[in-house]
């Protein structure tokens, strides 16, 4: 390929498309591996808490509703999460995934950053305070 001097290159640049992306109006698709918001799937979770124990930011909590029946709720703090992906690696049951689509996570209220995952009745119980903070501790039973 022929090499250009800077002058030739600059003149060519004048007529080229700019490199700047006009972001909200145009956007490139995100790569498949992009680490966005964490998602938790209650099916298969054993409550081993390996995910929460090694989370560098303490961003994920597994709240036990009923240990025997394997009923858990995950509380995820998107504002603390550093999107490292360690929890996804740690979970041997494939309960955790990171979305490559959800990455524009700005919000006006802090509450938006605390996300509950789990079966609806369980989450409601946690929200209503039936499960106290103590019993919701992360310690593996």
């Amino acid at each position: 390929m022929k090499r250009h001097t800077l002058l030739q290159y600059a003149i060519r640049s004048l007529f080229r498309r700019t490199a700047t992306q006009r972001y909200p109006a145009e956007r490139t698709p995100t790569p498949e591996r992009l680490r966005g918001t964490l998602h938790w799937n209650p099916d298969g979770c054993t409550g081993c808490c390996l995910c929460s124990k090694e989370c560098p930011a303490n961003a994920i909590e597994i709240i036990t509703i009923d240990k025997a029946a394997k009923q858990f709720v995950a509380r995820y703090h998107a504002d603390r999460c550093i999107y490292c992906g360690q929890c996804v690696i740690n979970c041997r049951f494939g309960c955790l995934t990171m979305s490559s689509e959800e990455w524009e996570n700005a919000a006006l209220q802090k509450q938006a950053f605390t996300v509950y995952y789990g079966d609806v009745p369980n989450v409601e119980r946690v929200l209503e305070g039936f499960v106290t903070q103590d019993s919701a501790s992360n310690s593996p039973a």
Binding site: R33, R35, C84, Q86
Partner: peptide, 24 residues
């Protein structure tokens, strides 16, 4: 940067390493 993002999922803190190996 785009290559790194596609490879590891992040542009700055790639988090490609794991103790004992790599993620990707």
């Amino acid at each position: 940067m785009d290559i790194l993002e596609a490879l590891t999922g992040n542009r700055v803190n790639y988090s490609a390493n794991l103790l004992g190996g790599v993620k990707f």
